[in-house]
Design a protein around this nucleic acid. Structure first.
Lengths: 227, 227
DNA sequence: AGTCATCCTGACCATTTGGTCAACTCGTGG
DNA sequence: CCACGAGTTGACCAAATGGTCAGGATGACT
């Protein structure tokens, strides 16, 4: 750890050209992934740029070179997660089968949490802390998203396809139940004694949730043979 | 901000005697309350002793005088919350009515989250971060708690009082659904457009959850007139 | 050869961090 | 009156924080 004036240390990862922005792309990906983990674990304030840099295997300066500053990096991660969420249950209409839609919702939400557990936790941490960066999103986009779906649910109720339950609370119920397995994974593992949640577990949980929730709000299971 | 050798500043809050440990009690209460808020919002690392001190309206030194150090303060808060949780659904037996027990569980869990939203969020943040301080509790006490209840649920199933669902996942479902309204309060408010969750809302949510979950796992509503 | 854009990073900075400590103020009991 | 324990707190410290910057490396172009 004395003087190392010579540049004969670890080669950096390639500099200069490397055609196009390939270096940039690779490093940014690496940094975003590392940052998602660290932010998810410690929250915005608790996460340090240094820790993110170490997780990405890069010097702190390099992280800041690509991301500008901590805040920007964080916002970028939130936006990435919002995009993933927005793609969910994109278009449903009154004509669809409630059972199919609800099951699809539960299933895709479970998969989202499973595929991006850190992103999921990042989101949770942000909201837990009062959503300082997401206020607008919650009161805008997401609110629209929820209310659009809620309206469809209401129409199903009117047509007698499901019990008269508040659709917004139903959405929250599904949200929370599915979110739980990503956000509280540590707890789930600790209590069940497992050391990981397997694909089989996910499938079983999905079916459990689907069954209980569909039955719970009086939706008749999908009309068997679809199509 | 120059020299103020004279002690003619704000009076401290009373020093010296004040009989017994009344000062200690009052200050500790104040600090614990403030710390719960701050830790809940920022997580363990993100919270600073300085911020806690300001929230409690005391100098940082004073907080450390009472609590020793940040870690100890945090652990104390976790323990307080564990105690609250342990008191929940303390004794149930196979002889009890499933509907009544489940409703009592949902109701008391909702009230716990409502009465101690910060504690609830503190807990959530701790688990979100991988439960570095709570591993033992999760794999020990809490696991026992869950499995004891799960065994009762299983016997209910055998007696045909409810559908054959995995009782542990049922507990998680209830846990997550109720926890949601405390942990994600910001989200709930943002989406519904409310500016607070009223007692009425809590009652409605409780009834909604009770209805959907009981029906969802085939439990017959309480046999009307109790006692 | 020289220029340029991209990439890399150690040195540095002001501020904040958790924590210690000695000096202080009181009321009480001898 | 003095000693004592409880409470109070500013000054201080080493370490870590987010961020800047100058200096350099490297390959692709003219």
């Amino acid at each position: 750890m004395t003087d190392v004036t010579e540049s004969e240390t670890l080669q950096p990862a390639r500099q200069g050209g490397e055609s196009n922005g390939a270096t940039r792309e690779r490093n940014e990906r690496e940094i975003l992934e590392a940052a998602e983990r660290v932010f998810a674990q410690y929250g915005y304030r608790g996460a340090s740029v240094q820790a993110i840099a170490e997780a990405a295997g890069l010097p702190k300066s390099n992280v800041l070179y690509y991301m500008g500053n901590k805040r920007g990096l964080y916002v970028r991660l939130l936006e990435r997660m919002m995009a993933r969420w927005n793609a969910l249950l994109d278009d449903i209409s009154v004509e669809d089968d409630p059972a199919e839609v609800l099951e699809a919702f539960i299933r895709s939400k479970m998969q989202l949490s499973r595929r991006h557990p850190e992103g999921s936790r990042l989101f949770a941490a942000e909201i837990l802390g009062g959503a300082p960066f997401l206020q607008d999103y919650l009161r805008g986009e997401l609110r629209e998203w929820v209310q659009t779906r809620a309206r469809v649910f209401e129409q199903w109720e009117e047509r007698g396809l499901m019990d008269p339950v508040d659709p917004v609370w139903l959405i929250f119920l599904i949200w929370s139940a599915t979110q739980h397995y990503a956000d509280f994974e540590t707890q789930v593992l600790g209590i069940t004694g497992k050391d990981e949640i397997s694909d089989d577990d996910v499938e079983r949980i999905t079916q459990f949730l689907t069954r209980v929730i569909l039955k719970g709000c009086g939706v008749k299971p999908a009309s068997a043979m679809p199509g």
